[in-house]
Design a protein around this nucleic acid. Structure first.
Lengths: 212, 212
DNA sequence: CGATGTGAATAATTTCACAGCG
DNA sequence: CGCTGTGAAATTATTCACATCG
């Protein structure tokens, strides 16, 4: 609805609020409204930041009462584009790929993995949840035929860039990358990366610092 | 060495530089020095930001030549606390847990999973890479006996907070959380969270926005 | 010369604090 | 009154631009 550009940080937090509202049914049970103070307790984001974030979506709150929970969820879903189904390709049928495939949270959010690819003979042809694992060479046909817009890369880092290039050539628009490498993609492709080792390195820094 | 507080963002990027230097052996092969401009090309971080980040660790560079690659790696490892071994506990022996267990990148960075826990009868007693999966009730003994400082939570969200509480009670100092919930932990515990659904929601936002 | 390291300028984000409204 | 929404201030992060030095 609102057309202003919403800051990246706000987008990240909108997803957090959304998740809290979805899962924290106990705390919000029976209530129709939630205040920024309560949402702050549930999410560890300051109440002021919450109000500013939510104000990006228009005037949703009611003074003295707070935000209508249903309306808030709807607004966030609408802004984040979660009120539609997204067709997702998964590349890499290793342990991580399997974990992602079996994760129910994706489907609940509207993300459906409709194609799985790998390059290993042993895996090609097997089925995961009714989806047949296909040879990576078929990416191009599939992505365009099935109109897939999002891809998840869960392949070893050595082949990650080539995989990304192939996906982009196939018309993918966004990539969630789990390979430990900084992928290079054109400006019009949206990329998010999750690097597990980097996350641990971060913890390591804080543990080290604390000692002295 | 340098004792100033390093910004969180810089810490994140130091891990990125480190990863690039480690993996990009082709680009850096034979060379002993790298300039901020080259590092910028490899990591998509601006050269100015790189120089400022690196200057947090002291005067590492040489004008006209750049940064000595070995020395740079050593400095980053030292700051990030990656020049020692970390003993890690993994809680949750599902698909994601297995993927994390089998991921070699952790061990290469110095993180060794030395204990695995689950609450499912069927899994307890099985072995993963010589590590026996133990009943979650044994967390407390193990964490203190084996002097484990870092835990990875890969359990369903409903039991994630209880798991975190138990770990903290057991003396863990840092947690990497994969459960889709905002864990509440005391100030002295360092927490990082990876929420796969949130990452996808972010892509979804940009795809949606692009359309109009 | 050619690259670093860093003040100074700029931009982005967060917090403060309170007017305004039901 | 009690809460939102938001200017204004404060803080944090990034970029610019150049003095500096081998």
């Amino acid at each position: 609805m609102i057309k202003k550009n919403i800051p990246q940080k706000t987008i990240d937090r909108l997803a957090i609020y959304r998740r809290y509202l979805e899962y924290a049914s106990e705390e919000t049970a029976g209530r129709h409204f939630i205040t920024s103070a309560d949402l702050s307790k549930g999410t560890q984001v300051s109440a002021a930041a919450i109000r500013r974030d939510l104000s990006c979506m228009g005037q949703l709150g009611r003074r003295k009462i707070g935000y209508n929970i249903d309306r808030l969820c709807n607004s966030i879903n609408s802004v984040l584009g979660l009120n539609k189904k997204w067709r997702v390709a998964l590349v890499g049928a290793g342990n991580l790929g399997k974990a992602l495939m079996m994760y129910r949270g994706f489907r609940k959010l509207g993300f459906e993995i409709v194609a799985v690819f790998d390059n290993a003979r042993l895996k090609i042809g097997k089925k995961w949840l009714e989806i047949k694992i296909q040879d990576i060479r078929h990416i191009k046909d599939n992505v365009s035929n099935k109109r897939i817009e999002i891809a998840i890369i869960a392949v070893p880092f050595k082949v990650a860039q080539a995989t990304a290039d192939l996906l982009i050539e196939s018309g993918i628009k966004a990539i969630l990358n789990f390979a430990p490498i900084g992928l290079k993609v054109p400006d019009n492709i949206k990329l998010r990366s999750v690097d597990l080792a980097t996350e641990l390195a971060n913890l390591s820094y804080f543990l080290t610092k604390k000692i002295r």
